[in-house]
Each structure stands twice: as structure tokens, then as C-alpha cells.
Design a protein around this nucleic acid. Structure first.
Lengths: 154, 154
DNA sequence: GCGTTTCCTATCAATTCGATAGGACTTATC
DNA sequence: GATAAGTCCTATCGAATTGATAGGAAACGC
């Protein structure tokens, strides 16, 4: 149930690209992305290749090359990013939650796993890069983050 | 963002214990738990020791020994189980979501991570072993699982 | 004391995770 | 067309995690 470094780095790099998209439109190099968000350069490069394959960014090689968002920042959700760099959302022992098979007293467990995945989706698939950049989350997400003990450990 | 085998196994074993709690009250052996839910015995043993340390189950050694729930099934949440066997809910690179530090364009990212954790809690901390056993989830969880595409992949 | 069962320690192979190295290929620019 | 700046491919790396097993010490009921 953890958020991996890959996901974290991917999103931070994409946020920088989103910011650049607003400003002008020349591609940003991996080196520059790594520098502004303080990410390990070579590791980030590998992640960017995945994002490219996943269709979230465009790339241009050579001098004055680099990366740019393949779509408006308002249309790229965090869920899309997570799925590309980390795979499907809430797998159980490597199997999709609705396909996990249970017997006896565990019969109703799939309902829980599916609900859990749905709750992840309700955040990740509703929040876009643009929203994070502006600090303007959907009402539903803001409500979650404003719950009394949301910022406390349990 | 995956549910580990440890978590899955722990919950299934606890569900069996919950079922036994209703019936009578003699402890159930690890061997028996492994058999009824088809879990690897030695691996399960290790998990049960963690659950014991975490205070979720009582154990009795020796002949006619075994495990039993330390509290009513209606009072043990899945969240408590997950935290014991897998640690804190939505850590980012091993750090609590509210403690992750970001600069520049990623400034508002903690809000997302905290909301994400809150959404996990809204399922895991609201569902008890008893509820799963009866197949009677809280309204909020049932609503999530009944969403149009909840059972489909994305 | 005998069988049963928890519980502790150690170990294991496989996989994943985070990260780096080196170099091949592409491209703009002079 | 050389050159510098990039992407991108392949390989590798150590460390941690994951899922799992083995063997035996300790406790317990009878």
C-alpha cells in the first residue's frame, strides 16, 4: 500500500513539464527536470522513457531536445501516471481484485478489495496535473484532505 | 499500491477465527487455519506471531492450543490488520505522506497523498472482520463496490 | 513424561526497487 | 559535416523486500 519512488518522481517531473507547458513550449531536458526537482538523473531518464511509451509525454532527441506533455495538463490524471510506472492499482498477490478467488469465510473479501480500488480511483483518476499545479483539487478530494485527523498518523 | 500476500493471508486466517468465535470458543491451531483457507503453513505461523504481538489474537501453546481473536469480530478493522502485518498505510518513499517534502511545482502534492491515505482509511478502518463475515458492508463501502465500473479493469 | 502446538532463529530463492554506467543513435546549429 | 546536446537502449548493481521453509526450543494439557 505504498507510493513508490518511481511514481513520486514521475509525477514531480510531469508537474514541471506542465508548468513549462504554460510558460512557453520548448522541450525540457531530463537533466533540467532532475535538477529542478532534485531527482537522480539516470533513474529519471528511465522513468521518462516509460512515460513516453505510455504516451503521456513527447520527446525530441538531439540538441535543444527534451520532453513535453503529450496532452493538456488538465487532461492527464495521476491515475494514468501510476498505471504506467507502477502497473494496475490495487492488485492482490499480483491478481486483479475482482479475479481473486476465495472460499469459505473469506467469500466476501473481493467486495472489500474492489471497494478499496474504487476509493483509490476516486482520488487518482479525478486529480489532474493541472489541478495539482494550481493547488485546486476537486471538491471530493479536498474534503478528504480536510477531514479532522487526515494529517495525523494512525 | 498492492495488497500483499501477508495482508491477504492474515485477514483470511482472522476471518476463520472470527467464524470460530461465533461457534464455540476453543482455540484453532495454525495447522487447521492453513488447511481451511489453503495457506502455506509455516508462512502463516510467522504472520500469526505478528498478529499476536499486535494484540489482535490470543494464543495458547501445547495440546488443545491454538489461536483465538482477542476482541469481538465487530471491533477488529481491516486497517488494524494491515498496519500490523504491512506497516503504515500510504507511505511515500518510506515516509509518512504528511511529512514528505516538496519544492516548486510539486508544492501541493502532499494534499493528494493525504487525501489518498484518507480514502484508504475510509474503507479499511470502517470494515470489520464481522462485517466481511456477514457480507454486510457499511453503506459507504457498498456504494463504492456498486459503482458502474468498479468491477472492471482500467 | 509425552504428544501437541506455539514461537524463535535462521535461511532461502526470487523478485523488486532504486540507482548508475556506457555508449549508440538523433538532431539543431555553426 | 563536425560538434555539442539530447534521447534512448542495454546491462548491471547492491540492497531491500517478498514469499516461503527448516529445525528446534519452549510451553502446555493430560
Amino acid at each position: 500500500m505504498n507510493i513508490s519512488a518511481r511514481t513520486d518522481y514521475a509525477i514531480r517531473a510531469l508537474l514541471t513539464l506542465a508548468s513549462a507547458q504554460c510558460a512557453g513550449s520548448q522541450p525540457v531536458s531530463a537533466e533540467s527536470l532532475a535538477a529542478t526537482q532534485q531527482l537522480p538523473k539516470k533513474f529519471l531518464e528511465a522513468i521518462l522513457v516509460d512515460l513516453k511509451r505510455g504516451g503521456l509525454v513527447n520527446s525530441r532527441r538531439g540538441s535543444a531536445g527534451g520532453y513535453s506533455l503529450a496532452a493538456p495538463a488538465e487532461q492527464i490524471t495521476l491515475g494514468a501516471v501510476v498505471r504506467i510506472v507502477d502497473g494496475p492499482l490495487a492488485e492482490v498477490r499480483g491478481v486483479r481484485p475482482q479475479n481473486a478467488e476465495y472460499v469459505g469465510d473469506a467469500e466476501h473479501l473481493p467486495v472489500v478489495w474492489v471497494a478499496l480500488r474504487a476509493s483509490l480511483r476516486s482520488v487518482l483518476d479525478e486529480v489532474t496535473l493541472g489541478a495539482v499545479l494550481r493547488g485546486d483539487m476537486p471538491a471530493h478530494v479536498r474534503a478528504l484532505a480536510q477531514q479532522p485527523d487526515a494529517w495525523r498518523n494512525r
